[in-house]
Design a protein around this nucleic acid. Structure first.
Length: 345
DNA sequence: AATTTCCCCAACCGCAGTCCC
DNA sequence: CGGGACTGCGGTTGGGGAAAT
């Protein structure tokens, strides 16, 4: 991401308008807009390869591109730059986006700094198309506490569990041992590790005070990301036709999550990865687990009618963040009603 | 098969911040 | 110090492909 890492990238190192730049200025008439052509891309790539980036307005003129400097900059940074990472957002990246967005809000460029190769535009699009869509499905405002808690207590733990599961599977595969998602790896055993080598999260990076829920969760993130690179991501192990990495499970959709849950109000154990850290490090959303529900009662006995409807495919579980049990849970605890059988977009 | 609707994402726009003259 | 030029950021739009009807 293009940021003022040292406060100096915007600093002009030469006088505003050199003679060579001025000689180019007559080329700036009838500016083009809209999609870039292959020829334009090549011109821009070649010019930057020879002259470097920056000074976008003069670059556009001198390269002979009938584009604004802003357009050239955007095209380069979001598409042509060699280190732009293409393909689906991986689970790790999704988790990181959710975590960082919960901390910083719509600071896309800042979030993008922590996802190498991803652009602010891409993250922004991801958020708008995926996250906000699910908020609408739940008829929650994406900025509401309800939805944020939903992300924190359902979505993010789920992501972590999926990452754990795929990591365990990959590891077992590597050593030739069959494995299942019920690995002995316990998410609940994660603890803040300030020695992690993922420096950007969980350790007060950027002057952000990381504490409480965020702190501990960031510790988990740090663990997850300590060994993460785009190359070794457990979920980025396939490629599309262009050779770009594509996550086989890039969305929060198809995972069958196993409730019911422990009846303890805050010791909220999910099958699979053990999410016992809720009781220690995460603050239970007020009252969410404390409404007298019998979690030990089978889900389908509690909500037969609705469950049947979802099980019959009214809810497209392959494309929804929330499976039937989740939505039931959300209805019970958050007052969010599912709109999966319609489209509120 | 044709049409409509939905969804994704590249690109644009406006604004604010920064730098230099 | 003010103003113009430039850059970067976040919000928004619209084209095109996919899915649904």
């Amino acid at each position: 991401m293009d940021v003022d890492v040292n406060g100096g990238s915007r600093r002009r190192t030469s006088s505003r308008s050199t003679s060579s730049e001025q000689s180019c200025e007559e080329d700036q008439m009838d500016l083009r807009r809209g999609p870039w052509t292959v020829e334009e891309d090549l011109v821009l790539i070649n010019y930057i390869a020879n002259h470097g980036e920056g000074r976008w307005n003069s670059l556009a003129r001198c390269a002979g591109l009938k584009r604004t400097g802003k357009s050239c900059r955007l095209r380069w940074l979001n598409y042509l730059r060699p280190d732009v990472r293409r393909g689906n957002i991986t689970l790790e990246e999704q988790l990181l986006i959710l975590e960082l967005h919960s901390r910083w809000g719509n600071r896309w460029s800042k979030i993008a700094q922590h996802l190498p190769g991803r652009t602010d535009n891409e993250i922004k699009n991801y958020w708008r198309t995926r996250v906000q869509k699910h908020a609408k499905q739940l008829k929650c405002d994406v900025n509401s506490k309800q939805f944020k808690d939903t992300m924190r207590y359902l979505w993010m733990p789920r992501l972590m569990e999926r990452i754990q599961a795929s990591s365990a599977t990959a590891a077992a595969t590597t050593i030739g041992v069959s494995s299942s998602a019920t690995s002995t790896t316990s998410v609940g055993n994660f603890h803040r590790n300030n020695n992690n080598n993922f420096p950007n999260v969980g350790t007060g990076h950027d002057g952000v005070l990381v504490q409480g829920v965020t702190s501990d969760f960031s510790g988990h993130l740090a663990q997850i990301n300590a060994n993460y690179t785009p190359e070794n991501s457990s979920t980025a192990n396939s490629c599309d036709s262009l050779g770009n990495q594509v996550s086989p499970v890039s969305d929060l959709t198809d995972y069958c999550y196993n409730l019911p849950i422990s009846g303890n109000n805050q010791n909220y154990n999910f099958q699979g990865g053990q999410i016992g850290y809720f009781s220690d490090s995460l603050i239970s959303p007020s009252g969410y687990f404390n409404q007298g529900l019998d979690f030990n009662q089978p889900m389908d006995q509690q909500s037969n009618q609705w469950f049947d409807a979802t099980a019959n495919g009214v809810v497209d579980q392959s494309e929804n963040l929330w499976n039937a049990e989740d939505i039931w849970f959300l209805q019970q605890h958050f007052g969010c009603s599912s709109s999966n059988n319609n489209n509120s977009m």
